[in-house]
Design a binder for these strands. Structure first.
Lengths: 213, 213
DNA sequence: TCCGCGATTTGATGTAGCTCAAGCTTAGAG
DNA sequence: CTCTAAGCTTGAGCTACATCAAATCGCGGA
């Protein structure tokens, strides 16, 4: 069905499409680097399948996971001519790319990306509220409720992120994230089947914690 | 030159275009509410002139200013069918609106908005890094360096926001913002001509504080 | 099965920024 | 010019989260 041309693994996949502009889809393993903040921004990318995180670094090494992406989401953006964020896969993933010029030539593509940008911008607005104004417990509750439908298997959520990655997404430390999970468990709002498998028991309380958003 | 049809003042201007879809441009005074979070999302809006802030509220009243907009920036977005943020003018402003359906019909408009969405999404990514990982002093330095060119008069910046608004943008309290201004002044990085007029003396140090971004 | 290592949890202590509480500054009205 | 009120600054103490430091868990390989 889908045209899969290349297989990329590990972290050796820097701006993979730049040298082979004809490639339509690329397959990545989990924990692969798709592109680096600061590299020349040649193409716009789209998640076809899997999960990707966008990160930004400060010179001293502090990291922020700025966005979590699922199928349909767009990345590889640039304010000037270099990528504004790095992108890493969280799971095995399939990525497709578009030439930047194609946005002007292909109105259908433009319309689709426009819709997706709107959704992603709204998600960023919510995230700003989380980062700027919510307590640690509220942030973790919000995070669990916002996990993509893809990560829900039966009634349990599968987190494909470490505590450190969650912490970097929520603007916390890994210890604080861990304590928040324990506190939610202690209060009976969730059960931790394993470190990366969560079952939500009390959706109402969780939603109240997360700001009823 | 520009077609100005309506004059709106104060906070009585709720989704002003919804009942008069033929209106192209609207003029607002400073501190006017352009639209409310949660109202039906009928139109997409664009800042023509002036400055607008987008805010989100939590049920208990905590507020986050999620985005600061200048000429060309787009707002009035919705993840579902209601506006995700409220919008208030910071200065006198001129706003234009587009029917949501026009995005599909008008490829030129779509292309323009696409470019702007990309820029705004990149700005949100930076803002996430600020909110999630920067100290109070760094946030304020970042804020001062990112003020729109419009607010720069000669060599001094004119802040059209109160300490509370800046605090809500940076995820701080107004006291902490005030202390950060005082600290920057004490260190000789800026001069405070008035509460709302700042002159940057040491751009290098400011840029270093703001993460050299 | 046992071992080893990375990830997680938990505990003890430190601190940046929040909260509460005065004063101070400034612009606008009378 | 004086008065007032809104906004700003500064101080003192508190608290949520960070930091530092051990355990403990759990999975892949021998």
């Amino acid at each position: 069905m889908r045209q899969i041309i290349e297989e990329r693994t590990g972290s050796h996949s820097r701006h993979p499409a730049s040298s082979e502009p004809h490639i339509a889809h690329m397959r990545f393993t989990a924990h692969a680097t798709v592109l680096h903040e600061g590299d020349p921004a040649r193409r716009i990318m789209e998640v076809v399948e899997g999960a990707v995180m966008l990160t930004k670094l400060l010179p001293d090494g502090r990291r922020q996971v700025v966005e979590l992406l699922g199928p349909g989401d767009v990345f590889g953006l640039a304010a000037c001519d270099v990528y504004a964020c790095s992108a890493e896969t969280l799971t095995a993933a399939i990525i497709t790319t578009h030439e930047r010029g194609a946005l002007d030539r292909d109105p259908t593509l433009a319309a689709r990306l426009l819709r997706r940008f709107e959704a992603q911008l709204c998600a960023m607005h919510s995230h700003a509220l989380v980062l700027g104004r919510m307590s640690a417990l509220e942030r973790v509750a919000f995070f669990l409720l916002r996990l993509t439908p893809e990560s829900v298997v039966g009634s349990t959520l599968h987190l494909s992120m470490t505590r450190q990655e969650i912490a970097d997404f929520l603007g916390l430390t890994l210890e604080t994230v861990s304590r928040a999970f324990s506190e939610l468990k202690r209060r009976g709002l969730v059960a931790l089947l394993r470190a990366d498998e969560v079952k939500i028991h009390d959706h109402g309380s969780m939603r109240r914690l997360a700001g009823a958003a």
